[in-house]
């Protein structure tokens, strides 16, 4: 099929940036979205133009490196997938596709479609861990039984890939889903309860400092999250924070 692409081009962080039109032909419906961009880049390279920069790595939906705001949605129109898992069969011949970087003050553009998401790392550094030494001298893994239900919920929260689709989709560029997923993962486990108070206070503080917006519960993040992280996590974090801030 043939497509018309409108892609955000920006030389570097200081450049103003603009949308540029490209036409691409012979796109196979079996291609992934990123493979379609590979073809475009090969073409641009052959013509002596600068290829479009975009983040990607594992191309199997788990590393969280790929981003892209496609036709007004993070990771495009399909649900439960990252951009690398989005296939061209979701589009029709002749479609126009808008491709933009994830937008947030806390995600500044580096080049074209590549953004800097290290703000996420800094939030994790503020408390997204359990303070145990990695000595291996911990107690036996089965010493504390954990309810399967809680372990499963904790796992579901922990499947967050840190891609930032929640921030990109949120009208407030809020990172609540991301932060709450980490807070929830630990809050649901006995090992994580010990530091629960400090963790939630510190992580939220960092989240605010990084310039993310506040949550207005629109639910866009949950819909666009490629891993289906639930809004329940945000409620849990709200609860944890409320309790923590009154301690």
């Amino acid at each position: 099929m043939n497509l018309k692409l409108k892609i955000w081009r920006q030389k570097d962080a200081r450049d103003q940036g603009r949308m540029v039109d490209y036409n691409i032909s012979d796109v196979s419906p079996d291609m992934s979205f990123l493979e379609m961009l590979d073809v475009l880049n090969e073409d641009l390279n052959n013509k002596g133009e600068d290829p479009v920069a975009f983040d990607h790595d594992c191309r199997e939906g788990i590393c969280g490196m790929c981003s892209l705001y496609i036709n007004g949605e993070a990771h495009g129109p399909d649900r439960g997938v990252t951009t690398c898992q989005l296939h061209m069969r979701k589009f029709k011949d002749g479609d126009t596709i808008y491709i933009e970087p994830f937008r947030a003050k806390a995600f500044p553009v580096i080049k074209d479609l590549v953004v800097d998401r290290t703000s996420f790392d800094r939030i994790q550094q503020a408390g997204g861990f359990i303070s145990v030494n990695t000595s291996g001298n911990t107690q036996d893994a089965n010493a504390i039984p954990i309810k399967k239900h809680n372990a499963d919920l904790s796992f579901d929260a922990a499947t967050c890939i840190g891609c930032g689709a929640c921030v990109a989709s949120c009208k407030n560029a809020s990172a609540m889903l991301f932060v709450s997923a980490k807070v929830s993962q630990f809050a649901l486990l006995p090992q994580g309860r010990v530091e629960a108070t400090e963790r939630v206070l510190n992580m939220v503080k960092k989240m605010d400092e990084e310039g993310f917006g506040a949550c207005t519960n629109t639910g866009a993040c949950e819909v666009e999250c490629p891993k289906g992280i639930s809004l329940e996590n945000i409620a849990r974090m709200n609860r944890e924070y409320l309790v923590a801030s009154m301690k």
Binding site: K6, M19, E100, N172, V223
Partner: peptide, 16 residues
């Protein structure tokens, strides 16, 4: 302020 530059195309109706 958390999003100083908006999207050219935003399909918010798809998720909210």
């Amino acid at each position: 302020k958390a999003r100083p530059k908006g999207y050219v195309k935003n399909n918010a109706a798809a998720n909210t």
